[in-house]
């Protein structure tokens, strides 16, 4: 179950890998770019990617930039759910936005690994 509020920090465990999944909801289509301290890790569809071992990513910042394009003509809504696992606890949170005049919106989210 996802919470609407995404936390700024994510607590890691030294010897466990942190994984990330980005889900584009509302029947829309989107492409993400995931960066760790400015270095690109992955792009496009993000499904359970390995961000790194807890001790290696502690103190680093994970940034996810997603452009959502309107593919579902039945709604003007766009939402992105971020699922992080492998840390002290799994989190799932959702960001929501509506399309404006343009049929694309950008959503950004950062997590500080602690």
């Amino acid at each position: 179950m996802s919470n609407d509020q995404c936390p700024d920090d994510y607590s890691v465990i030294d010897n466990q890998n942190v994984n990330l999944t980005v889900t584009i909801g509302d029947g829309q289509i989107g492409s993400s770019k995931v960066k760790l301290n400015g270095q690109t890790l992955e792009g496009g569809e993000i499904t359970n990617i390995n961000v790194g071992l807890g001790k290696d990513i502690k103190g680093k910042k994970l940034t996810i930039n997603t452009t959502v394009d309107k593919a579902n003509p039945q709604t003007n809504k766009a939402s992105i759910t971020y699922d992080l696992s492998g840390g002290l606890k799994n989190i799932s949170c959702t960001e929501k936005k509506e399309f404006g005049k343009d049929d694309s919106v950008i959503l950004s989210r950062s997590f500080n690994f602690k």
Partner: peptide
């Protein structure tokens, strides 16, 4: 009106929608 689309559906992916 289409009541289903009154609300957000974060888990509804494009593939599931299509």
């Amino acid at each position: 009106t289409a009541p289903y689309w009154w609300f957000y559906h974060p888990q509804l992916t494009f593939r599931e929608y299509i």
